[in-house]
Design a protein around this nucleic acid. Structure first.
Lengths: 220, 220
DNA sequence: AAATGCCTTAGGCGATCGCCTAAGACGTCA
DNA sequence: TGACGTCTTAGGCGATCGCCTAAGGCATTT
């Protein structure tokens, strides 16, 4: 490590910060277009329109770039997820928003970033640990949300154990992203439609309970 | 060093075939231990205990090694899956065997091979296409099996649409493998236990129908 | 024994990699 | 204006990569 920030003290060092963000943006683009093996110092500098020496100067190593890219990317996702499920809306609306996010993300290629970073981490303990932590945070958000939803729908926790339910949703979600990135989309629409319809039918059979539960439950 | 004998012509060229198999075995080992980026000609030759020139001589390129490794690996999986679900047993036994396979494979690190090959394919159209084809075969096997199982359990296809059910099973299965390779296993046991219990309860409520259906249904 | 042709080897070519350095540009102080 | 610390640059070092070649080993056929 070299450069300490001097002007950082009074103006958050916009040029440096801009360069750092530029590299992280470029890293995401390269992850989508080339995969994690395609993120080299030279290509990264080229994609960011900056000099490759800066990568060493600002980040120290390429691994650190990948780690920071992972942190920034996953922070965004977790924040969005948290905001969504903390909102005061019927569960089905949250679910539909989440599924809309999924479609939007797929269209934008974001799951490729997430999966490439995971693949990168499979052989780098530090990265893998961070991945596991993000996964854990995500699971916690869903556990909260689904716990409330189970109340809202009046589901029997013995018939639908929360932990299993959350794991099912997380795994099939990631499975869908994995398949899509590998060029497979067969059955996905049918699956999502099925779930949507099931949620809707549950909402109808428990109509009045639902209103009570929705009012009652913020969270905690 | 390997065996001599240029009886190649009359007995399927054992030395060459052995070398090829040796490289493919070594490739699988390297995929597990190093990831697809760790499969280089030199490391592959080292892991196989063979000369690196042979890779060019036998395969032409490293990409061809990866492609053949993918074909061999996926052929094994599909064959096993097909044999399992074509057997004449109650569905729950097949399912439990499949879940036992999953655990065994995870213990042996095989899903890492599958996922590394997928990651490798994300940026190589030829590989990706093969991945998609294997996925399709797999889905067909499950569609057959679950179609029969739905009969066996007397499930209403309107309540449990086959395509969605198959997609759910495929995606959550791959999601579990993905999470495990990334170091996450939380909730997996609970999820599998839940499914097992649900299948068992379905078997009980439809006990006699079940026997009829099991006798009735081979397949076709 | 000589010739043939498959098999195997060591080694090297050009390209690319991550990381680092030396030097100058720039802005901000005294 | 001169000194100083920060930022930015071009370029190069050693390592490693995929691919290929030239040369011989060796069993089989003449």
């Amino acid at each position: 490590m070299v450069g300490r920030l001097a002007s950082a003290r009074r103006s958050a060092s916009p040029p440096r910060a801009r360069a750092v963000e530029g590299f992280l943006d470029a890293a995401e683009r390269l992850l989508i277009e080339e995969g994690h093996a395609g993120v080299t110092t030279r290509r990264l500098a080229g994609a960011a329109g900056l000099n490759q020496g800066l990568i060493h100067y600002y980040f120290g190593s390429l691994d650190e770039v990948m780690l920071q890219a992972l942190e920034r990317f996953t922070d965004r996702l977790i924040k969005r997820q948290r905001a969504l499920y903390e909102a005061d809306k019927p569960f089905i609306e949250k679910w539909r928003t989440a599924m809309r996010y999924l479609e939007e993300d797929l269209a934008a290629g974001y799951p490729k970033i997430w999966l490439e970073l995971q693949a990168f981490g499979w052989n780098r303990p530090e990265i893998r640990e961070r991945i596991a932590r993000v996964n854990q945070e995500w699971r916690e958000v869903l556990t909260d949300a689904f716990g409330n939803a189970a109340d809202e729908y009046g589901l029997d926790p013995r018939e639908f154990p929360l932990e299993a339910l959350v794991s099912l949703v997380m795994t099939f979600n990631q499975g869908i992203e994995l398949e899509r990135v590998s060029g497979v989309s067969a059955g996905h629409d049918a699956l999502l439609a099925w779930i949507d319809q099931w949620l809707e039918s549950q909402g109808e059979t428990n109509e009045h309970d639902h209103h009570h539960a929705a009012r009652r439950g913020g969270q905690t």
